[in-house]
Nucleic acid binder design. Sequence first.
RNA 1: CGGGGAGUGGCGCAGUCUGGUAGCGCACUCGGCUGGGGGCCGAGCGGUCGCAGGUUCAAAUCCUGUCUCCCCGACCA
Length: 567
Amino acid sequence: MSRQSQAFIPTLKDAPADAEAISHKLMVRAGLIRQMGAGLWTYLPAGWRVERKVEAVIREEMEGIGCQEMLMPVLQPAEPWKKSGRYAIDELFKLEDRKGSPLVLAMTHEEAITYHVAREVRSYRDLPLMLFHIQTKERDEPRPRAGVLRTREFTMKDAYSFDRDEEGLARSYDLQSGAYERILDRCGVRWYKVESDVGMMGGSGADEFMAPCPAGENEVALAPGYAANVEVASARAQPVELPAPLSAPERVSTPGLTTVEEVSGALEVPAGALIKALPVIVEDRGMVLVLVRGDHRLNEIKLRNALGAEFRQAGAEEIAAGLGPVGFIGPVGAKIPVIKDAAIVGGSFVCGANEPDAHLRGVQPSRDFEFEELDVRTVEAGDTAPGGGTIEIEPAIEVGNIFKLGSRYSDPLGATFLDENGKEQAIVMGSYGIGPARIVAASIEQRADDRGIVWPRAIAPWQVHLVSLAKAGEPEREAADRIYDALGAAGAEVLYDDRDAGPGEKLTDAELLGCPLRIVAGRRGLAEGVVEASERASGAEHKLPVEDAAERALALLAGVDDGSGDA
RNA sequence: CGGGGAGUGGCGCAGUCUGGUAGCGCACUCGGCUGGGGGCCGAGCGGUCGCAGGUUCAAAUCCUGUCUCCCCGACCA
């Protein structure tokens, strides 16, 4: 129940000059949010209503699977973070109180929840257990961007499961996964569940819920029956036509030609017939030469996971000292371990000769150099997915993610229980995050048209936007007032535009704000005894008799097909 | 962290090169007209030109430093 003349919904004719993403522009323009600093946003009343609606959906689905709500502080002692090993993360905000005690601003709540569970849970009889809260997170992001999409402070629903073993974890994980699917469907978000990297969370397995949209900062590899973040995606490469094999590598002079393009051009072979050699320094292992096909890109996350260790690119001096001249290095004759990407197959490649201004052709793996084979390249559109489908790559927003943590936190923080045999065991944990703000942004990105936002009913700030085109005191305004009262009496959520503004401004604002049903009460319709209802999503228009306009509007609303799973 | 761009009234911008009265559109206030797609007329309010220091008779403008914001990349539970 809101009269727009008294509401704080500052709409803008133009988007801020520095906004790029659709959701960023529209959320600012529609008066949902305003910026306070880089990655720091205020939710204005209409925006906050939307955010709270998403939270309400999340709450219902969490409670539906027996996950209990609680609330943990954002400001926390540093101690548990030191124990878990995450105190070293750059993104973690660190501070001190007046006594000099180290504190942190939590970026997630694994440490806090594990701290509590470690103290209260003692027996297998206390398990399984699922807890969640909806709380602010703080992250010192290197680069906040795109409005509400990547911020330094944001609200997240994070849930945690506690089980006695892996089977229990699998059950909890499935329950959470199902809840996430329902949450996103109900919020009208199109999504894919994809395999993902465990990242800084640590743990044994993870899935992400990705909402495809242009502003997405992740890329997902999709094919029928296959979906994975490109960070971890694996597929069969497109074949490349190799030159005829030689009985032994042959040295060719390539003066000054150091890039794949230059060498493939000069030797008239496709880029994929080259081997790119990338020297990296692996933690505790020294320099290793990683090979990928000339037309492929090394995927650092896949390499890190395959190595089971951190690594960095070797510096120019290190390369010169350990291998050969930068730009002309290759695996033949290299005196360091070689990792060959699995997509390098066949017997006649071109690679650096480890001497200035020279390459080798006719190089054949195994025959000419030894290697360990790993899948470390980034998949590309057109590759063949494990199921046989053709890979497409699409940008997407990560709206949620779920992790099998195992004992990643229960070990360092001492969260254990006694089993039936009186034996102490580590609690097996899972963690499940979802970002309401990203759901809001994704919903806008996926559904907006050139006039503005198109909300699904479940998260619209108001269900009905009643627009009076008349001025206060006119009979047409009184008719609108009566409809407003009737809608309110019927329990509908109505935003009533009773501002003394021109019709163009009001109608444009209504489309910008995107409530599912707009009702226009103006002189033209009222002269024939009707008001005009239009569905924001479909554009369908209906004339409703004034006398029972409210009732008819509610009936219409119930049938509005808004594209969400909740209609 | 690397590259690029920008800080001038609430928003969008001009003015900066070539130093000399701070300006435009929108918004806002008041009055009037208008009333189905951001309308019109008139009168107004509102700015330490991001900050600090320097050069100069004089700095939005030149110099030095610094802060902030945006975009691309790196990074990103």
